[in-house]
Amino acid sequence: MTDIDLKSADTQDATRPAKPVTFRGGGFQIKPLGPIAPLVFIGLIAFWEYGSRSGFISSLVLPAPSEVYVAFAELVQSGMLLVHLSASLQRLVIGWTAGTVLGISVGLLIGLSSVARAGLSPLVSAIFPIPKIALLPLFVIWFGIGEGSKVATILFGTFFPTVITTYGGVDNVDRNLIRMGQSFGLSWSSIVRKIIFPGALPAILSGCRISASIAIILLVAAEMIGAEFGIGAYILLAGSLFATDQLIAGVAILSTMGLCFAWVIGRAEKYFLNWRT
């Protein structure tokens, strides 16, 4: 094509049909839309209440939200809510903290030592998928029917996912940062404390999110063993009595606990991981 050809193409512009380029982008971006979530939630509950009152949701199938509210109010008025909550929170906090601390320690060990990795990592993979509920009768014999077996159930449940996320996090720490530490003559313990642990912290905290949820799931299982008080025990009793209003109220308390934990961990992530882009 010569320059003359180009010129003639230019002059033809006026006569050739012109149209704007069709927009093909967009569509896959998630935009934040503030009040949608509460609206969906309120709408769902309103529909549920309407269904229960008009009778097309039988009270046998699902109690009305208002009945659930009454059951919850009774729980508050009787003062039992605090008793149940404090019993459960104590088990959760002790079990989860111990499970997390042990899990991080063993995870670091597996992440740092070849011997520990060869010896422990298959063991962890083998024990992790065992449903802890299946071991309940054994836990009764090992840890008794007091607080021991309840805390142990939660501890075992949170320990394994923490181990796995921790050593995954250690594996993902930038090798070059470790080399940098060595090049400045940092000691082994300094490299672990100042480079590897903070580098694995994002993975550890997201592991905490998972293990906190698992702890709440296991709370009901843990309180199957000789628990008089506790949200899990309350739910189990409601279930065996077919008191479905109390059952739903108990479940709602559990999911609120889940939300609170997620919020706390979210704050912790904001605080500890403010260096992330």
């Binding site: 070059n176 940062l177 940098m180 480079i195 903070p198």
Partner: peptide, 9 residues
């Protein structure tokens, strides 16, 4: 180092 090797935290 080429990639600076700064601790991001």
């Amino acid at each position: 180092f080429q990639d600076f090797a700064l601790l991001p935290w």
